[in-house]
């Protein structure tokens, strides 16, 4: 029993220590952002690796999620004779929830794990030490540009996901199932609010992008410099990002859409 409590205390302490390291790491990363701005080339390279390489998975998933929503929504709504609201249903579920959340989960799986593996391998092969010995701060040179790229990519990817999904829902809804196209769009436009829905969705995706990129970079930077350590860190990135994104989504939803 005492052993169990000791173990519990020890693991609590290690997780707090890790949280502290992660916070310190975040502060250094944020202060390093200022040195990224005069060097857009660094950012551009990372936008390619973080954003462009996630582009395909995001658009294709968005299309399919929208199509499924169109199909399922139609079956439910047609029971009440409310097929005309299909556009509203598809768009509000995408813009408010599925767009930011699913694209952030995909982002953590695609770009986040790649970032962790990349940074972890740079650590294992002494590249980070090497950079430091060349009098270059690896946080400023390696971490901060990647962080900024993640932060900028995420809202764009989420918007892309939602937009493609809405079009996918329209393809299935009015193309396949015969919902009036005008009703699809007009119901959506009448009910979705720019401030409440679109802006809040974008805020969500920025928060998710911040957290997912932070976790991915920190796990890589904090990984044990061995192949086993890097592979464990990559797994932790995906698991921790998923927990954080879904947990934060609940909090943000409660804050944003609570009093309506």
């Amino acid at each position: 029993m005492i052993q169990f409590l000791q173990g519990l205390g020890k693991s609590t302490r290690t997780s707090f220590t890790k949280l502290g390291r992660a916070t310190f790491f975040l502060l250094r990363t944020l202060s390093g952002l200022f040195s990224v701005l005069p060097r857009p080339r660094l950012l551009l390279n990372q936008l390619y690796f973080v954003g462009v390489l996630s582009f395909l998975i995001i658009t294709i998933s968005g299309l399919f999620v929208g199509m499924v929503l169109g199909l399922q929504g139609y079956y439910i709504l047609s029971d009440f004779g409310a097929e005309a609201s299909l556009g509203l249903m598809v768009a509000s579920s995408l813009v408010r929830e599925l767009g930011p959340v699913v694209s952030a989960l995909l982002f953590a799986g695609r770009a986040g794990s790649a970032l962790t593996a990349e940074i972890g391998l740079m650590k294992a092969t002494e590249q980070l030490s090497g950079i430091e010995m060349m009098a270059v701060d690896p946080i400023k040179r390696i971490i901060s540009p990647r962080f900024l790229a993640g932060l900028l990519s995420m809202p764009l990817l989420a918007a892309l996901f939602s937009a493609v999904g809405i079009i996918g829902g329209q393809l299935v809804g009015s193309g396949l199932l015969g919902v009036d196209e005008g009703a699809y769009w007009s119901q959506m436009q009448a009910k979705l609010d720019f401030q409440d829905d679109i802006i809040n969705g974008i805020i969500k995706s920025i928060v998710f992008g911040f957290v997912a990129t932070w976790i991915a970079l920190f796990e890589g930077y904090d990984a044990m410099p061995t192949s086993e350590g890097v592979s464990r860190a990559t797994t932790r990135t995906v698991v921790n990002s998923a927990f954080s994104i879904l947990g934060l989504d609940f909090i943000l939803t409660a804050l944003m859409f609570g009093d309506d």
């Binding site: 768009a91 813009v95 809202p155 764009l156 918007a159 892309l160 939602s162 937009a163 493609v164 809405i166 769009w185 959506m188 436009q189 009448a190 009910k191 979705l192 609010d193 720019f194 829905d197 679109i198 969705g201 974008i202």
Partner: peptide, 11 residues
């Protein structure tokens, strides 16, 4: 996409 969401999808 952001423009699309703002102009075509919302009010």
């Amino acid at each position: 996409s952001l423009f699309f969401l703002s102009l075509q999808v919302s009010n």
